[in-house]
Each structure stands twice: as C-alpha cells, then as structure tokens.
Amino acid sequence: MEHVALWVAAFLTLGIISFLYKDNPWYKLCEAIFVGISAGYWFIVLFWDNIVGKFWVGVFPPKELNDVGELVNSVEPDYWLIVGAVLGVLMLMRLIPNIGWISRWPLAFIIGCTSGLYLINYFSSNMMRQVQGTIMPLLGMNYELSTYDIIGNIIIVIGTFTGLIYFYFSKEHKGWFGRAAKVGIWTIMITFGASFGYTVMSRMSLLIGRVDFLFGDWLGLIN
C-alpha cells in the first residue's frame, strides 16, 4: 500500500514540476486532483472543528454522571453560540432570490467586527510600539555604543522619519520634501532587498527537499 502511495506522490510531484515547462494535461490532472481533494479536505476539517467541535459541543455539552448518579452537563452550555449559527443561516439566504439581500447582514457583522478589532490592535502594535522603539540616542556618551551602533541608530531614525515622509499623501514630493521622500524610498528599497536576500536561501532548501524525495524516498538513489 505504502509503495503505491509513494508512486502516487511521485507522480503528482513530477506533474506539478512539469508546469515549469508549459501547461500540459499532466499538470491539469494534478491541478484537478489538488483542487477537488483539498476543497473537500478543508470543508471536512472546518465542519468537524467548528460546527461539531465548537458549536454543537458548546451548545450541547457532553453529559456526565454527578456525585449522586444524575446525568448532567459536563460544562455550562453556551447558548450565545446560536447567534453565530443564525448568522450562518442568514448567509445561506443568498440561495433564495427574493430575500438574498439578507445575507448582507452577516457580512456587515463580519466587516464591523474585523474593522473594530483591527483598528486598535494594529494601532497599538504597529504605531505605538514602533514609535517607541525608534526613540534612541544618537550620541555614544554615557552609553556603551560603538561607532557602528551610533551610525546604525542615526540611520534607523533618519530612515524611519524619511520613510514616513514618503507615505505622506497631503504634500507633493517636491523640493526638500521630495528629497527626503527619496531617501525614504531608498531605505525602503534596502529593506526589500534585505528581505529578498534573506528568503532566497530558504526557498532553495524547499526545492532540495523535493529533489531529496524524488531521488531518495522514491527512487532510492540517494540516502
């Protein structure tokens, strides 16, 4: 059985790689398998985890025997979860043409929640903490800072400051403001370069992993 499964895995691996040459029936077959199987997979995982694990068990908790031999709920039922299920059912109203617009209610609920939650979360983690982190000394006196550290600090402060100027919408990038914005975009480009260079190596190791599977696990040519 495992031998067959290994061949199936190898067949699918080569099928996907064949896309690099060009679109072909082998890739199309792999793609069709991937889409069908994975869509089913995720529905099942979400169904058991969320509908059964969270909703059903939350509203109808499993029973257990208490000290006097009575069958009682193991935990308090959370009837508020029914609100979630009602919103879910409202979502399905899209299937009924005349009242399809009701499905906008759960959508509006989700959009309100996401906006409300992210507003403060992002503000706190992105703005407050980053501004705090940028408050750093630019001189080494009374600090054990090397020349490189000081230059580093100066670059961090100037880079962050000019980077923010680059994102400024209310003023045209002209004159000194334009020059500052230019420094800002240079800093941002160095950031992108660093991020790019940092990721290249790890991406190569992914390929090495697949080559290892084909020539090691499947063909047994390398140990």
Binding site: F123, N126, T134, I156, V157, G163, L164, T187, I190, T191
Partner: peptide
C-alpha cells in the same frame, strides 16, 4: 539591524495608520 529595521518601521507605522483610517471609513 539598521537600514532594514528603519524601512520596516516606516512601512509598519504607515500600515497602522492606514488600518485606522480604512476601518473608520467602513464603520
């Protein structure tokens, strides 16, 4: 540790402000 961090910070602070603004527009 230096220029990369500076660029990251500018982007991240901008995102924080962008999210506030867009969330308010939606709400």
């Amino acid at each position: 540790n230096s220029p990369n961090l500076a660029g990251q910070r500018a982007i991240i602070i901008g995102i924080g402000l962008g999210v506030i603004s867009m969330s308010l527009r939606l709400i």
